[in-house]
Write a protein that binds this DNA or RNA. Structure first.
Length: 286
DNA sequence: AACCAGGCGCATA
DNA sequence: TATGCGCATGGT
């Protein structure tokens, strides 16, 4: 079976795969912290979602994290990477905790991991996220998949290919109810489909070039570009600044981002984002 | 029932 | 370089 570093232990069972000793991964914290918009919470507390054409159902249990309906091969080729299981989050959290604010944020939600999502999906998701609510972002992304994505036999939909979206007209995008973001999505689809914006290169391009490549798209500014690079290209040094992080910087880090976060700024950002957004009193109070 | 949301583009100085 | 405004839609 798969060799993983750190102490994560993988057990194979009938229903799928169990991750044991996975102390730095909380399913709800990771999937509900505003980085991915397509995971559905089921009645039993599990989450169902997909990346590419691979589906899984994931449940936190006392014995470990159960990935239902996942084969060895899918785990090795897809989910190990998607959940960033090769990265030592214990070491990152320890390093960040040198600063008291990070220490609090990490203690508040120690099970957050930064997912390695598909680049094109991350780009669209964060175009949609601008000046918007989490709840509504989820609805628009779901309709985007249902209207333009390929349906699977099990009722799931793939995230639409750029070509499929590029063929559509602005009028056809109206069903998404994405508002002024519809034309941004269309411009992204057309530039990606035509090769004018090379999403596959974003992971390896020098950071400045990668940003510039993304900002060729109307409706992609510095914040959406940083989100795409962080969540969709594995660029953990990227640091998206939205209204929440802006407030956090002003109040909690008036002297700038602490040095202990310099090589994993994006991961630090995710702990802080979730902390200030959902923990009462994290901002303003003290 | 206002107010505002994981921003951006454009106008103005 | 720095503000300020409108933008579509709908959640709180």
């Amino acid at each position: 079976m798969t060799k993983t570093d750190s102490e994560i232990n993988i057990k194979k069972v009938n229903s799928g795969i169990i991750l044991c000793n996975c102390n730095d991964f909380d399913v709800a914290q990771t999937l509900d912290c505003g980085q991915a918009f397509r995971w559905r919470k089921m009645g039993d507390g599990s989450y169902t979602g997909l990346t590419g054409r691979t589906v899984c159902n994931i449940l936190q249990t006392p014995d470990g994290i159960l990935l239902r309906g996942v084969t060895d091969r899918e785990f090795e080729e897809v989910w190990y990477n998607y959940f960033d299981l090769g990265r030592d989050y214990a070491a990152i959290k320890q390093r960040l905790s040198a600063h008291p604010v990070f220490a609090k944020a990490v203690e508040y939600a120690p099970g957050i991991r930064v997912l390695r999502q598909d680049s094109w999906e991350a780009l669209c998701s964060f175009i949609i996220s601008q000046n918007n609510h989490l709840k509504r972002i989820q609805g628009i992304v779901r309709r985007l998949c249902e209207v333009f994505g390929e349906p699977l036999e099990n009722g799931e939909y793939l995230f639409p290919e750029p070509e499929a979206l590029a063929r559509a007209s602005l009028e056809e995008l109206a069903v998404l109810r994405a508002g002024f973001r519809a034309r941004y999505l269309l411009d992204a689809a057309r530039k990606v489909a035509s090769g004018q914006v090379r999403v596959q290169e974003l992971a390896k391009l020098p950071l400045e070039e990668a940003r510039a490549e993304l900002m060729k798209i109307t409706g992609v500014g510095i914040k959406v570009a940083e989100c795409t690079l962080l969540y969709g290209c594995g660029r953990i040094e990227c640091f998206p600044v939205d209204v929440w992080i802006g407030r956090a910087m002003k109040q909690l880090f008036p002297d700038g981002l602490p040095a202990c976060a310099s090589d994993c700024a994006g991961i630090a950002q995710q702990y802080i984002f979730h902390y200030v957004r959902t923990c009462p009193g994290a901002l303003g109070g003290n």
